[in-house]
């Protein structure tokens, strides 16, 4: 800080325990290694399933998308230190909303524009 007096932090407010911060500082980056291996497994798994078309394509698209979401969660949790914060981890709230709105945005756009003739 720059000589100012405001090293204060608002306290944890009731109802916001879900964004309580958390830090980890292990001696060996085991987390990272496991995260890397897991992301490789997910990537190759999705690829293998797609190349071999192990099920109905539209179901499979849903499955590989779910695997992508799992991998995003993996990256966020393992690599991105998503719970780290000074005071409540506020960024989790908009981040969660962003993913929700983002998925809604893509899904709704497709839904809105996939129409056939409205009149039979």
């Amino acid at each position: 800080m720059h000589g100012g007096d405001e090293q204060h932090e608002t306290a944890m407010e009731p109802g916001f325990e879900f964004i309580r911060p958390r830090f980890e500082a292990p001696k060996f980056p085991m987390h990272q290694v496991w995260g890397y291996v897991a992301s490789l497994v997910l990537t190759f798994g999705a690829l293998w399933m797609t190349v071999n078309r192990i099920m109905n394509p539209s179901v499979l698209l849903g499955v590989v998308l779910a695997m992508a979401v799992a991998q995003a969660a993996l990256q966020l949790g393992v690599f991105m230190h998503v719970r780290e914060s000074r005071g409540p981890a506020w960024h989790l709230v908009p981040l969660g909303m962003a993913f929700a709105i983002g998925i809604g945005l893509v899904g709704m756009s497709v839904w809105i524009m996939m129409f056939k003739s409205g009149v039979s």
């Binding site: 709105i101 809604g104 839904w111 809105i112 524009m113 129409f115 056939k116 003739s117 409205g118």
Partner: peptide
């Protein structure tokens, strides 16, 4: 965030939308 289509109801997105 859930209301934007009311600006183009008349673009044929269908009754459900």
């Amino acid at each position: 965030y859930g209301t934007w289509v009311h600006h183009f109801f008349t673009m044929g997105a269908g009754p459900a939308v």
